[in-house]
Each structure stands twice: as C-alpha cells, then as structure tokens.
C-alpha cells in the first residue's frame, strides 16, 4: 500500500483521537530507564524513545492469566470462553513485531489455539522503527529483525520533523482516514526514509561472532558445551528471562474454585522452563534437573528447535533476557562463548 506522513506537531492529537476511537496502549516511562505498555489517552503519555518494555506486547495476545473454561458443578455445565478487548497497540518495535509473528506460528500450528487466534484479530498493531540501537543488549541484526518484516497494520519511522507511516492493511488505512491528520508522503519523505535505512545498515552489525545462517549450525554442535556448566553455576532460576521473552509461550493450567465451592474456572498462566518444578513427573524424576540444563533448553528453544519446526529463530534480539537477568547472564556473551568453545568438547 502507500506511505503517509504525520507531522510531529500532530502526534499528540493523533494519539488523542485514536484514544477516542479505541483503547490505545503504548510504551510509557516507569522511571529507572524502564518502560511498559499501558493504556494512554494522549501523545504526551507515550515514550516514543524507549528501550524494550519490561514485558513485551505479548501480554495483550497471550495474557499472563487467561480463563479458558468456566464450570458449574451442580448444573453439570462446562463452557469454553474467550475474554478479549479491542485495542490499538502503538509503538511496537521490529523485534516485538517478530515476537508476535513467532506466537502466531505456534498458536496457529495444529491443533489451533482459538483463544489466541480470535484475540489477535481484535488488536491493531502500529509498529515503530528504531533508528539506532536501543542499548548494548539488543541483538536484532543477527536474527534479522532490525528492519521491518511485516506483522503490522501501520508502521511509523521518525524523520526530522515528521513520521513517515507505511500503511500495510485496510485496518491501518481506516485509522488514517478516521484521524484525519495524515498527508500522502512526498518524494522528499521517501528519500529521508531511505537515508534512515541506509544509516541503519551501517550502524547495525552482527552483534555476535557468528552470522545469521551459522547461528543455527553453532547450536548443532553445542549441546555438550562447557558453557552450560558456567551458566549452571551462575543462574539462580528466578525465571525472569523466560517471563520477559516475547517468544516464550509455555504455560500452566490451574483450576480455581469459587467460594460457593460449586462454580469456578480453568485458567492458563504463564510458566517457564527455568522454574524448578516445570519438567518434574510423578515418581519424582526431573528431566531437566540442573539450572544449566534448563538454560541450555532455553537457548535451544530460541536458536535450534524452532528453526527445525518453524524455519525461524525464536530469539527476536530484543535483549530483554540480558537486561533482566539477576545473574547478569548475557545472551550475546553466551553465544560468543559457544563460538569460542566450539572445538572443545567435554
């Protein structure tokens, strides 16, 4: 479709008028250089320059806690339900767009997850380009997510005194029409956009000592690496890394009984492979008993297993796991350590 332009001076009006049409969520500053997606009413609430939020926008597609079933024991009824909310998410970085694409693949893989698939279509996504690296933890280039690869309705790139907006779907187009603040892009805007992209090609370099294609091969040989022993000694299994990851989707199922002891629900709640009881079975066996084995599993679930199943890396390069890690375990350092130790085997 086409490109539109929004003057920066109209940005606040844009968010405000969007908020009159639909619930709008966007990155909001929380202090201490942290951000989170929250409901906003005005452009002033939005942190246009932000580093990846504490939790990715995944929380709107696959909520932390989600009722799947409601039952009434005495009436003998049990129904499946979907809780949803229409909304517009503004300001999704390319890494998080990729995260949503990963979840789309998983939940549309058969058997399909209807809850996810219906909810996702109630949400309009407005992407926002990072003209430079968020911080030293990001590694979006090596997984090829530093430039937009679709997955949005509208996509904003900041130019000198305006945003150039790629209109990708009719839903995005409707918002352009309804808010009445956009003008068609002129050649000068397209030139500026190309300049931004050109500069990005120069700044964004493979962040680790291995390139995009060799990354998967690196993991073919790394199952027995000593690097996992190092992580075993350092990781404290707090689960932060998996909870903040945009492409982690493991969950637990919990039954809740209401106080009448008759009605209740079956809820799914985020779970993570770093948590001690995650892989324990009856009889006490735990198939990933050590923290090192669980860390290895986490890395393999980003760089190897999904490549085999879905032909893409599930690491989006957002850097959240490194930023949040209690033990300061760094994704980039781990990959580099694997490269360095490739030859040595236990």
């Amino acid at each position: 479709m086409q490109y539109q332009v929004l003057k920066k001076s109209s940005f606040n009006d844009f968010i405000a008028s969007l908020a009159r049409i639909e619930k709008v969520v966007a990155p909001v500053a929380r202090g201490y250089n942290t951000f989170s997606f929250q409901e906003v009413k005005d452009g002033q609430d939005v942190a246009v320059k932000y580093i990846p939020t504490i939790l990715p926008p995944k929380k709107y597609f696959f909520p932390q806690r989600e009722k799947l079933i409601e039952f009434n024991k005495s009436a003998g009824t049990l129904e499946a339900l979907l809780e949803y909310e229409k909304m517009v998410i503004f300001g999704v970085h390319t890494c998080d767009l990729a995260g949503i694409q990963c979840l789309n693949m998983v939940f549309s893989d058969k058997p399909k997850d209807i809850n996810y698939l219906v909810r996702k279509n109630k949400i309009i996504i407005i992407g926002l380009e990072c003209n430079e690296y968020c911080d030293q933890y990001a590694s979006c280039k090596v997984v090829d997510n530093h430039l937009p690869n679709g997955g949005y309705d509208l996509f904003f790139t900041e130019l000198t005194d305006s945003f150039i907006v790629h209109v990708n779907t009719i839903y995005g187009d409707e918002l352009i029409d309804k808010t009445r603040l956009f003008n068609p892009a002129e050649q000068i805007h397209l030139d500026q956009l190309e300049a931004v992209r050109q500069k990005k090609r120069e700044i964004f370099k493979d962040e680790v000592k291995v390139n995009h294609n060799d990354l998967a091969k690196l993991f073919d040989k790394s199952f027995d690496s000593k690097v996992w022993d190092d992580l075993d000694a350092r990781c404290i299994a707090c689960g932060n890394c998996t909870n903040v990851c945009p492409s982690c989707y493991c969950f637990d199922m919990l039954d809740n009984l209401n106080l009448d002891l008759n009605t209740g629900d079956r809820t799914r709640m985020w779970d993570g492979c770093q948590n001690e009881p995650f892989a324990k079975v009856a009889g006490g066996e735990n198939f990933r008993k050590t923290r090192g084995a669980r860390q290895r599993h986490r890395y393999f679930r980003k760089f190897k297993y999904p490549v085999e199943r879905y032909s893409r890396y599930f690491c989006t390069g957002c850097g959240r796991c490194t930023r949040t890690c209690m033990a300061k375990i760094s994704l980039k350092e781990t990959i580099n350590a694997l490269v360095d130790s490739k030859e040595e085997k236990k």
């Binding site: 799947l68 079933i69 049990l78 129904e79 499946a80 339900l81 979907l82 809780e83 949803y84 909310e85 058997p111 399909k112 997850d113 209807i114 809850n115 219906v118 079956r266």
Partner: peptide, 14 residues
C-alpha cells in the same frame, strides 16, 4: 473486557 463463548476450543472436555 468482553467475553464470548467458544464452541471449538481445544480445552473443552466431553
């Protein structure tokens, strides 16, 4: 938040 009934959820039980 809206709620809808699903008849094709994988989590429905017989």
């Amino acid at each position: 938040m809206k709620t809808a009934k699903l008849t094709d959820s994988e989590y429905l039980v017989k």
